[in-house]
Design a protein around this nucleic acid. Structure first.
Lengths: 194, 194
DNA sequence: GTCTATACCAGGATAGAC
DNA sequence: GTCTATCCTGGTATAGAC
């Protein structure tokens, strides 16, 4: 019965609001997203927003958590394959990545309005930490099994990977040429070929 | 006489406005910077803003140009030393870089309001192209003189460097730990040791 | 050129009916 | 729970005096 509710594709107004906001945070950012935008996207009335949440920032917290969970579950599904560590790394950096939408947590970290709010920032940091932990484990396994080069220590490798991934979106944006995203990631991967 | 004016530290209202806006774009971004913010920072009255410029976005264009010129002249001064190419690369990535202010052009590329305006975006892209060209020349010289490793082709190297630099700011922000900025840059530099 | 006053609109939230 | 009406504030720009 409870499962039925979750599986039902008729989402509640509350869910619609969270998902709409989660999208909008990636698309327009917190400051530029107005209540109007949210209501239009969610297809619910204004009453619902203020019934379920204490305003925009409160809804943001739920939306950010939603995005972080999405990222984590996405990463988990990549890890649960039987490829070698290097292939998994490649998948993490290229699969499920939409250059227009940007990184699920990176976009949030770049949002000043979000990072200026301690509560919201903490949630974003949780996402980054998770990503970092996931990558660190993966690198260690890769080095052990020989599919990933050991030129860099795991922590160095992880730091480089996360930064480069985040920056790849920005370079592509700044140069106004999306091909730089893939060029960057492919170059990055090259470094880890044993 | 004309030089006198330029050397005079009594800046004109117009210059004050451009410099104030240039700062604010890095600090708060375009959308979150209001005319009030600008006037306060520039210490000029409201009349001046609309006398010299056609509103906020027009002023932004001048401010962005100002920042791009700053970056270029900054880079030029690093290149005009007699260190080897590797040392210059290291200086470019670490000197004159303020983690709180962010990259002079990277911050602008991350600003949606800026990049949505074709004219403003073009100026930001000019800054990126300049950075890219500067680095590419430097890498080629470094490879030729033997101070920079040739494991990566110049274009690959440049792409990786720019992306990683930009992403380093974001990782530090997302993880809420500035030490990741330097860890990232130092790891990046390691790759280019011959 | 610079100032003050004014106007207008949008963001964000509240109140009370249904 | 959801809707509509209303309200307050601040961003942005204009007008006209000096």
């Amino acid at each position: 019965m409870y499962l039925m509710m979750k599986m039902n594709n008729k989402r509640s107004s509350k869910e619609k609001l969270i998902e709409a906001m989660a999208d909008l945070l990636l698309e327009k950012g917190l400051a530029s997203t107005s209540p109007r935008d949210i209501l239009t996207r969610a297809e619910v009335g204004q009453g619902s927003l203020y019934h379920y949440f204490n305003g925009k920032e409160d809804l943001s917290l739920h939306a950010i958590k939603y995005n972080v969970e999405q990222l984590i579950s996405c990463n988990t599904s990549v890890l649960n394959t039987d490829k070698n560590a290097y292939s998994k790394l490649s998948d993490l950096l290229l699969k499920y990545r939409n250059i227009n939408r940007g990184c699920l947590v990176g976009q949030l970290a770049r949002d000043r309005s979000i990072m200026e709010n301690k509560e919201l920032a903490a949630e974003v940091t949780r996402g980054f930490e998770s990503m970092k932990q996931t990558l660190e484990n993966l690198i260690k396994i890769g080095i052990a099994e020989g599919s990933i080069s050991n030129v860099l220590a795991p922590l160095e490798a992880v730091t480089l990977i996360i930064s480069t991934l985040q920056g790849a979106y920005i370079s592509a944006k700044g140069l106004q040429d999306d091909s730089y995203f893939h060029l960057t990631i492919n170059t990055l991967l090259k470094i880890f070929i044993p």
